[in-house]
Simulated scan of single mutants.
Amino acid sequence: MSGPLKIEQRGAVLEIVLDRPKANAIDAPTSRLMGETFREFRDSDNLKVAILTGAGEKFFCAGWDLKAASNGESPNADQGVGGWAGLTELTNLNKPVICAVNGICIGGGLEAALAADIILAAEHAYFALPEINVGVVPNLAAVSLPRRIPRNVALEFMFTGRRMDAPEAKRWGLVHDVLPLEDLMPRARELAALLADGPPLVFAAIKDIIRRTEDIPEQAAFDYSRSLASVQKCFNSEDQLEGARAFVEKRKPEWKGI
């Protein structure tokens, strides 16, 4: 399809490619389109995993489209149903999302990547939050980044606006794996296929538990997690019985999501 997004369905996996030369920057209409795309992914019975990446070899995403800003687009413009980049504030997205960072990932581009569950990066990719240099608050990253990497590292990174290369990002746990560019999408697709073949109710429960217990003391979180509807649904599901039967019968489970 033409436009700022290239979308392809591969079985149960939805691939979303941000394609806005030269820097894959995001304006408000693109953010709204991304939100609609991720909402459709969330609500689909057939799609299990999403991969977000950028077109080309240089940029994953340079953040907010400053050309649009120079033409009058406000920072408070409607970003759509999923908030910035369609993903940062999309509620109840209980399916795995993989971000394949194919190049420079800065500002709002990093905030979009942080909204994914698993981040893979090409060897030449780097990350930065340069907002400090122009007196702008990276508000989304200020919330999500310290939940990914040590707080002191996140603070120094945001305070200085410096670059973090892919190996360092992996060392701090921001990135799951670093690969040659030619191996990035094959690895993302391999991982997506593995997850697409997994139990959807368990994925949903895991994401729900993490989202709802991040600020709760550990023992209280243990107790609260069992009461969540997503967890009870999993415990009382046909898939729970199927998993036990498949283990006993030494065969591959057939997950139905019910």
Score class of each variant (00 low, 15 high):
161 G>S: 08
113 A>N: 05
109 G>P: 03
116 A>S: 15
149 I>P: 05
114 L>N: 02
103 G>W: 07
119 I>Q: 05
150 P>W: 10
154 A>N: 02
147 R>A: 13
162 R>D: 09
143 V>I: 15
126 Y>P: 03
163 R>S: 12
108 G>T: 07
164 M>R: 02
123 E>H: 12
118 I>H: 01
112 A>N: 05
127 F>K: 11
115 A>H: 00
104 I>W: 03
126 Y>I: 00
132 I>K: 15
108 G>P: 06
121 A>Y: 09
117 D>Q: 08
106 I>L: 12
127 F>I: 09
123 E>L: 08
152 N>G: 02
107 G>A: 12
105 C>N: 12
113 A>G: 03
144 S>P: 00
163 R>A: 13
137 V>E: 14
122 A>R: 07
122 A>H: 06
151 R>Y: 14
154 A>I: 06
163 R>M: 14
156 E>H: 07
105 C>Q: 07
107 G>T: 04
119 I>V: 14
116 A>V: 00
156 E>D: 15
139 N>R: 13
132 I>E: 08
160 T>L: 10
155 L>A: 11
127 F>S: 12
157 F>K: 03
157 F>L: 08
117 D>A: 01
164 M>T: 05
152 N>F: 10
141 A>M: 07
118 I>Y: 05
126 Y>F: 15
148 R>D: 05
113 A>F: 02
159 F>D: 15
159 F>G: 13
131 E>S: 14
118 I>G: 06
117 D>T: 03
156 E>A: 15
139 N>C: 09
156 E>Y: 00
160 T>E: 13
134 V>L: 07
115 A>E: 00
111 E>H: 00
105 C>A: 07
129 L>M: 14
147 R>C: 05
159 F>N: 14
126 Y>W: 14
